[in-house]
Design a protein around this nucleic acid. Sequence first.
DNA 1: TTATATTTGTACCGATTGGTAAATAAATAA
DNA 2: TTATTTATTTACCAATCGGTACAAATATAA
Lengths: 228, 228
Amino acid sequence: MVQYYFLNRHQLINDMENREKTFTTAPKPAAKPRGRPLAFNQEQALEAALNVFWSRGYEGTSMAELTEALGINKPSIYAAFGNKEELFRQALARYVSGPAAFVTEVKKQKTARQVVENFLRQAADFFTNKATPNGCLIVQAALTCGQSSSVIQQELIAYRKSFEEKFAARFDLAKAQGDLPQQVDSKQLAKYIATLHQGMSVQATSGATREELLAVVEMALKNWPASV
Amino acid sequence: MVQYYFLNRHQLINDMENREKTFTTAPKPAAKPRGRPLAFNQEQALEAALNVFWSRGYEGTSMAELTEALGINKPSIYAAFGNKEELFRQALARYVSGPAAFVTEVKKQKTARQVVENFLRQAADFFTNKATPNGCLIVQAALTCGQSSSVIQQELIAYRKSFEEKFAARFDLAKAQGDLPQQVDSKQLAKYIATLHQGMSVQATSGATREELLAVVEMALKNWPASV
DNA sequence: TTATATTTGTACCGATTGGTAAATAAATAA
DNA sequence: TTATTTATTTACCAATCGGTACAAATATAA
């Protein structure tokens, strides 16, 4: 399973980039690399990989499918991204800083209420966006899996936990700022929002529409109807 | 992928059982079967299979792991249950009529409110029951997967949809009986409950405790704190 | 041109996947 | 006892899994 080696090409590149950052401040003088140039765009390849992992999950994605989706042969993928696990991690990083960046951005809203409203409504849009796979990569890429993928599974669990904690921290801030009652348990509220969010992800992968998800959001923010 | 055959042993047995039901009314006169007796208990084996699928998902479960968990050799599994797909379906049926039967039972509560309260609270218990895997089989067994498992994936989506529709029907009944306001959209309410339920399943597989899930349920049934 | 560095394509690796052929074992029926 | 039926065991199948060795190709540096 686990492969040991001294340095692969992928790590070598990273290492050289770090050295460059450490010893020089030159704004990338191009300095044409020595050997045969890459025949593909790394960013585009990573985005293609992200989309496959997003729709099929980590375990459900095979290297064969990746080579087809990226249009690159296997050895080139391994040279550029390490291995399947590393490729997934880089795709995940791209997901978080790219299409899913709104999750972090939304916390800048003025009040906790606005944070939550915007978060859930944008999630409804995002999960059903026709330009990307349905649902949330972090929820569905390795919810269950074989033992060989449990590392990725645990990393995704940690990601979800981290997002939840950041929301709890935002609610603590809201309490300090007075736009959220003191008796509110920030962690519980964050878990409630996370639960809704994750449920919406499952709904989206199962075919729920944007309108249906938005209706769920409205309902979640309202009273239980019997008390109307 | 797909295997064609005239009759396997599994189908033969079902066929003979049906014939018996059709032509006789005798209450199973034992009628000892002809050949070598089964060396394992089918019910126990199915329960063991259910537990593996439940914790690892459909794709994450290998036949090798099943042979170990059931304590039966592969050919015996195939003879008794057909193939991996059929074994999963039978495990799923056992799940629905066994540990997850409360989902159907709970609809017998007097009011819609009681149905939902009981449903979500029992789900919180069920998802974190230490005697069984965490979360919901129907949510997590094939949320995403490779193309070869898409049949199972679609069947689980259909299951979730079916449960949701039955809840909507229960809410329609509640409206007719007057314990739910007429302006409530039964389908939307059902989707809201299903979303919470599915989110709770994700939370449970990620390590949420019973108490945390119960707190989420309480929150879901209450007002948004700002309106208190 | 020649040497060096890097990527590419092909063709392969051992391990594991779901699934099965065939011989043997254990039961009943004649 | 002998024939028949069914289950178990072992040992295997082709296909796919993630991953890689190696030589040809393509660039820069000397």
